[in-house]
Every structure is written in structure tokens, then in C-alpha cells.
Design a binder for these strands. Structure first.
Length: 255
DNA sequence: ATGGCCTGCAACGCAGGA
């Protein structure tokens, strides 16, 4: 089973890239973030023609998450239970017996911002929910844009990022809490090249210069981690015309 | 000079992202 995640930064703009990518990679489940599309406008037909069903939770202008799958997606859940939130950041569904959750973590804006406090609250709620989910789903995968670079090796230039969001200790501790629940960062289950990132700023030719962060992750429950055969970031779409600023991440499971 | 971009909305400049 192949799982993937991609922050598309507008599904409308990125649909051609997405359809092309699905055709070439054929994931069994694909998590999307920042669809920026209300549900009425979700491109269900175009995806169906490409062989994918979709469940989604969108809103106008901002956020929005989805799960695409080749097989049926059942037990669809929206949001984090007991964490009321207008912002559409979380959707879950069961695909081929695997509980798949697509998450778009808050950005945080800056360390002083109210949005940063919200980010930490959101992470605490996510962790507390996932601890329950792990008890009920032995096959659990949480994929998405976590907006945290877990370690310095996930940052092109840690000095330049000091004092910035994505790398602050409270954010990293919030992310580590997910790992302490028993979830594994699939990318780190394998030897990886140095300086592998999943996001590069649109400005400054950052992608060409390799100035990136690894903030898109695939977290696996112990049973899935034991069956994970590979996890890679596909940088290719970031080099296309009018790209998303994020690259897709893929995990291969032997189920 | 790690600056100088991109998206959606609804008006041509914001907010928000990372």
C-alpha cells in the first residue's frame, strides 16, 4: 500500500500537477492540505476520472484538507473531537483497513502571535486525540503538513532560522509528543540523503538554492512502521511551472 | 541582501502562508 501527502497550496491551481502526479505514482491513499476550496467546488469528477474517490473538508480561501483513495473511504471524521475549530485542518478515513488522517497544522505566524499559542493548543489536542486513536486502530497513519521541522537536520540553515516558527523548542516538543505516543516519523526509519526538505519559500529562488525545511511528515503506528519499506520526498513537482511550495511525501507499506 | 513570492478575494491591496 502506498500512502502520500501533499500540501497543494490551492487545489484549483494545482489540479493539473496533482492529476499528473497521481497518474505516475498511483498512491492508494493521498492526503491533501491547503485545498483552499469550498466543498461545492471540490473537483470530484476530475479525480473520479483519474480513478480516485475523495472525502474532504474545505472552507473559503484558507486551509482545507482531503483524502483521495482508489478504494472506498469509510468512517469519515472531520476535525479533532472536543476541539472546536472553524478552520478545516483535519480529516480522517479508513482505507484498505488503514486509519488515515490528513492534517494541516497551524502555521503560528510568529513566536509572539496569538496564532502561535493556538498552534500549541492545537498540537496538544491532536496528541490527546491520537493517543485514543492509537488504542483503537493498530494500523494508523497520520500524514500532512505539520509545520514543524523536527530537528536541526531538517533545516537548511539552523542559524538563520533561530527564533523563527517551525523550529522553536515548544513546537518541536509538541511534535515529539506525537512520537512519544508511539508514532514513528517514517522518513527517519531509513537512511536519507542530507538536506532533504519538503518545503521551499517561493522567494529568493529558494528551491534552486536548496533553502528548505522538512515540515511535511508521515507518522506511522508501530504496526505500520514495522511494515514500512520506504519513505521518500518527491522534489520533482517543486521544479515545475507554477508549483506548490511543498513537495509530496510518499511511504510504501507492505501489508 | 535569507530581499525582491504566491493564493484568493474582491477589488487592484489586502491577509495569510512559511
Amino acid at each position: 500500500m502506498r500512502l502520500a501527502t501533499w500540501n497543494v497550496n490551492s487545489l484549483k491551481v494545482r489540479l493539473p500537477h496533482l492529476l499528473d502526479w497521481l497518474g505516475h505514482n498511483r498512491p492508494d491513499a493521498m492526503c491533501l492540505q491547503e485545498t483552499k476550496t469550498v466543498d461545492e467546488n471540490f473537483p470530484t469528477e476530475a479525480l473520479r476520472a483519474a480513478g480516485y474517490r475523495a472525502v474532504f473538508s474545505g472552507q473559503k480561501t484558507y486551509n482545507g484538507v482531503a483524502i483521495l483513495s482508489r478504494a472506498d473511504a469509510t468512517e469519515v471524521s472531520i476535525g479533532i473531537p472536543d476541539f472546536p475549530d472553524e478552520l478545516k485542518r483535519v480529516i480522517g478515513a479508513t482505507v484498505n483497513g488503514v486509519r488515515v488522517i490528513s492534517v494541516y497544522a497551524p502555521n503560528g505566524q510568529s513566536l509572539e502571535s496569538d496564532k502561535y499559542a493556538y498552534k500549541l493548543r492545537w498540537y496538544a489536542a491532536l496528541a490527546s486525540w491520537l493517543s485514543v486513536e492509537l488504542q483503537t486502530h493498530r494500523r494508523l497513519a497520520v500524514l500532512g503538513d505539520f509545520n514543524v521541522a523536527p530537528e536541526d537536520r531538517d533545516v537548511h540553515d539552523p542559524k538563520r532560522w533561530e527564533g523563527e516558527i517551525h523550529v522553536s523548542e515548544p513546537e518541536r516538543a509538541a511534535f515529539r509528543k506525537l512520537l512519544q505516543l508511539g508514532l514513528a516519523d517514517a522518513f527517519r526509519l531509513f537512511p536519507q540523503p542530507e538536506k532533504e526538505f519538503s518545503w521551499w519559500d517561493y522567494r529568493l529562488n529558494a528551491f534552486q538554492r536548496g533553502w528548505g525545511l522538512r515540515i511535511d511528515e508521515i507518522l506511522l503506528s508501530p504496526e505500520l512502521a514495522a511494515r514500512c519499506a520506504a519513505c521518500v520526498i518527491d522534489k520533482r513537482p517543486r521544479g515545475l511551472e507554477r508549483p506548490s511550495d511543498h513537495a509530496p511525501v510518499i511511504a510504501e507499506l507492505r501489508l
